[in-house]
Design a protein around this nucleic acid. Structure first.
Lengths: 333, 333
DNA sequence: ACCTGTCGAGTAATCGTTTTCTCAGACGCT
DNA sequence: AGCGTCTGAGAAAACGATTACTCGACAGGT
């Protein structure tokens, strides 16, 4: 594989001049520069990244560590990050921590070893995993969930407020016993969605009970079991707030098994807009989170922190939007 | 940030010994090795990746270039690749070419520059984009779509056969005028699905007409328009074969707008199993592609090619499975 | 006692860039 | 003419790891 020395030799200049010509840095005689360029093209020279990064002591690469590649919310974030990063010549490498603190730790180590310029992550929970990043002063932005007892730039969605609004919406449409199916305790978004739900009930002096709440992993199977479990008791809910789209699938599947109709029999509002939400019968009411914008904001914050390391950490909160559809139109009878 | 010299100095040994101890390579006095290890831990030493890669002339990193991060088919592939790669200590970086030959070319350049150990990609079509990889002998595996006029290890799904089977299934259930909505001409999967559809019709001496076929980008909006267009003619189809899950959303949306019921009025079979396919009313019949297994197979092939560069290229074809549900149960009346 | 082989650790070369130094020559000003 | 000043290019020093080479010490065989 051709090196810069080969290019320099072919162009009849020193490697220093070749480097300068290729990077368009300092002033180089146009004639020499042209010779270098043609030589590079003829040898189809591609700079050696590791060598460059070693010398420069930094790589134009951002690491994005997300907790679930199969969750559309996170892939939308990824697109937002990518689009912003590419505009300014950064590459993005995407890592999937799978809600697993061990994998997260491992990817963080890789990011440090590869000396990436910065890291964006949705922390799985154990905030000590990010200590190595903080210790080294690697620029970092957390998305979706804040770090519990540490501090960094953060981009969040106003999830508590949205949960409150969605719950109020269910009450306003005539549902009386509203349940909530949310994610594991300790995951901030799960806790916030539950808190918003509780606040809304309290504000409306609505009956509330721990028996109407279920917590499970953020997945379809767990949500289905939770929903069946909610309906396996004396006084089941007549509506539920569901904390993400994978869970919504489980909940709708459970209702189908139970022979209950969303909306008419059981009101449903779920977090995350998906392509299919409008397609099911009746269409599913959702809280649409601005995932793409979260990604964009996170990338911009990270880039500006790379510029200026000791700016004070900021927190950005983006609003979500309730899209009311048939599944929360109100009970019949 | 601590370097290996710092570690060596603290442990009172040479950098060579420190390196040997840290990598567990050659024999090192256990006592010295222990001193190195503690020093490394105390300094929270992390090896400098670029330096290591520069010296070793290769990085334990695989690049995975997929054409759409938001398509569940490709994210499943990604998980398959990751799981296999991690077992043997490789990292995977995921790049999203967005069905865009320019972005694909760019990511291929990045992969070459970073001297990754190998590349897995789903080619957007213009097969010349991979020339730089072939020229440099970078190990490469293509997935989902073969290269048109070049050769490399390839992992495919038996998509033509599945399309034929799905079409036969629709005929067997009593549909007479079967249409097809597939992806852009030149994209191999789109062409193959169309070819399979045509073969099935021909084999059954079934009426066939160009007016029953629409080609569009692999997305929801295009498929919706295509479907509306199909039904805007004198003799619309009474069933359709749809080439992926995003398109299926568009097709179902169009049917909703037209007031037609899937299955009873218009039979529908779509490629790609999704969480929500069983949830819509009636449930959607699909061709389930073994995406995760495609990813696993691709990763294994790539790893073995990294071991042995001049093995002859192979092609692996995995079968898909038709899951019949309500949307192809047969017309009424 | 001497030679040989082995083992373990240090010295120094190396990977391919970028960048600091250095220096020669040109230029302009007095 | 003499003296800075400036420009542009080459020589060489980094960057931080791995590893080929070297060398001393020690063990064992003759």
């Amino acid at each position: 594989m051709a090196t810069i020395s080969d290019v320099a030799r072919m162009a009849g200049v020193s490697t220093a001049t070749a480097s300068r010509a290729l990077n368009g840095k300092s002033t180089v005689d146009p004639e020499l520069a042209a010779r270098v360029m043609t030589a590079a093209r003829q040898l189809s020279y591609q700079p050696n990244g590791p060598a460059r990064n070693l010398r420069r002591q930094e790589a134009a690469v951002l690491a994005l560590i997300i907790s679930d590649v199969e969750n559309p919310f996170f892939t939308s974030i990824a697109r937002g990050v990518e689009d912003v990063a590419h505009e300014v010549g950064y590459s993005v490498v995407l890592c999937n921590s799978d809600e697993n603190a061990e994998k997260e730790r491992r990817y963080i180590d890789v990011a440090i070893q590869e000396r990436v310029a910065g890291v964006i992550l949705s922390p799985t929970g154990e905030s000590t995993t990010v200590d190595p990043l903080l210790a080294r002063g690697t620029p970092m932005v957390t998305v979706d969930r804040p770090l519990t007892d540490r501090t960094s730039d953060t981009v969040l969605v106003a999830t508590l407020e949205s949960a409150r609004e969605a719950t109020a919406h269910l009450m306003a449409h005539g549902y009386r016993r509203i349940g909530c199916i949310t994610g594991p305790s300790g995951v901030r978004t799960a806790d916030d969605r539950l808190a918003g739900y509780r606040e809304a009930l309290r504000a409306a002096k609505h009956p509330s009970s721990a028996r109407l709440v279920r917590r499970t992993e953020y997945r379809e199977a767990g949500a289905r079991r939770a929903m069946l479990d909610l309906f396996d008791q004396a006084e089941p809910p007549d509506a539920v707030l569901v904390a993400n789209s994978a869970m919504a699938v489980g909940v709708l599947a459970a209702l189908k098994e139970l022979g209950l109709r969303p909306g008419a029999d059981v009101g449903v509002v779920a977090f995350d807009e998906t392509p299919w939400a409008a397609l099911v019968d009746p269409p599913l009411s959702v809280v649409a989170q601005p995932a793409y914008e979260v990604g964009q904001a996170a990338a911009r914050l990270l880039l500006s922190r790379i510029e200026d390391t000791d700016r004070a950490p900021t927190t950005t909160v983006l609003g979500a939007r309730l899209i009311a559809r048939g599944s929360s139109a109100g009970p019949v009878g």
